[in-house]
Design a protein around this nucleic acid. Structure first.
Lengths: 238, 238
DNA sequence: ACAAAAGTGTTCGTACTACACCCATGC
DNA sequence: GCATGGGTGTAGTACGAACACTTTTGT
């Protein structure tokens, strides 16, 4: 076996985390991007991300980036994929672990800091060219999100604490880029018994006000223990 | 902004790939492990994995490990998750990108080499304690596999080029750890129109010989283009 | 009264479930 | 001829799909 010193050649890489931060606003799915103000990719929009510290766990690094750049804690965060093409960064070999997070857009108070002079929400349909391989990362994260919301009740993370059934439907429609049938959607969601009726309604709308609901986390846990499976369908049958 | 040199502190990490190689034999789902013969974890069973070269893509590294340690090329390979807890490796900061691969067990001719003196298939239900955090990696990969075979026709990668419907059913039963109803399973599979009837049958069995099928890759592509969705169900209805 | 979205009930088709028996081969 | 798995048909049911009208509020 080679002596331990011979492995030193391998310890010359760096790694980063990049966050695809999803939000839902104005009926559109959006992503929070920062505008870089240094080379490489000066002036390009990029995903918020940074180097992982030497003694920092990956998840912790992703959380730190969220906290420092967006001022958010305790948001839904999930690792998506790791990107490590040899030429993807100019400084040397940098691989990046991509995360996606789901935030309630009203909670976000973007902070300009460091490389990020500008922080802005962008509709996912209209991103333009991003720095590095961030375009590809967004695409992978988005596909993951589309699948995940089908079988896990995480869409609620994107909605305010009190939302209407129509809000929820619009959210699914925006992410899946489909239309869903109102009555069937409502029937399906309500039959799962996952929503708490808050007993309140919308106010100040120029039509019949809708009931407000919240996601019942405890109820979901209880159902899970009984073997319940959350599942919604995207496609109409052929 | 800090000058470029200040980033050098970050370029002191190494990364590896680890492969969870699944095979199916004797009605059981198995994983290919190597027995280490050096510290740390001398004598422990471990996942086949190695450092990624400086100019090597991640997927390519995973393929190389497969080729060098198992003598296999062109097998199904998919990135699963990246593990990077600070203390997970003794040499320094090492993060590992985990892959899983699906192989036809008859194709494998394990080679002892380097750190791997022994290479052996182990039933997933009976692994014992593995080196490093490999037990956790296996667990994550297995969960991923359970989900993936539900919505993607990848189970076939674990079967020989000609297989019977019963083989396929046993495969699903082994991975999901459930029993499936024979007639319904066959009906569902055949209705998808994804299998080529090879016109041959088993030979030398002490009962009515079963028809042999193969997975029709071209047919699957064609169906995909029409919007077809592969999907099987694990659970019986409540 | 009108606009605008909320909310609801029923029919129809289809796909999953559950179940029992005959078939082809080796020994 | 018997043991062993291979292979099939059908009836019941539950769930998703499709569809049109009434209700409540603000202006």
């Amino acid at each position: 076996m080679p002596p331990r010193e011979s492995f030193n050649a391998y310890f010359k890489s760096a790694f980063t985390v990049d966050n695809v931060i999803f939000g839902f606003d104005e009926g559109k799915l959006k992503i929070l991007l920062i505008r870089r103000n240094e080379e490489p990719y000066d002036n390009y929009w990029a995903l918020p991300g940074y180097f992982v510290m030497q003694d920092e766990d990956l998840d912790a690094a992703a959380q730190r980036v969220l906290r420092e750049m967006v001022g958010l804690e305790n948001v839904y965060l999930e690792q998506v994929h790791t990107f490590g093409a040899p030429g993807r960064h100019d400084f040397g070999r940098v691989i990046t672990v991509a995360y996606y997070s789901l935030v309630k857009i009203a909670d976000v108070s973007p902070k300009a800091s460091g490389v990020a002079q500008e922080v802005m929400w962008h509709p996912v349909q209209d991103l333009g060219e991003l720095a590095f391989d961030h375009g590809e990362i967004v695409s992978v994260a988005l596909n993951r999100l589309k699948r995940s919301i089908r079988t896990r009740p995480i869409g609620f993370e994107l909605l305010p604490p009190a939302f209407t059934l129509t809000d929820l439907q619009h959210l699914y429609e925006a992410i899946w880029e489909t239309d869903l049938e109102k009555r069937n959607f409502r029937k399906k969601i309500l039959s799962m018994d996952l929503l708490k009726d808050l007993g309140r309604s919308q106010e100040g709308v120029a039509h019949r006000p809708a009931k407000l609901y919240s996601f019942d986390e405890d109820r979901y846990q209880a159902l899970m223990d009984e073997g319940f499976n959350f599942e919604l369908r995207e496609g109409k049958r052929k």
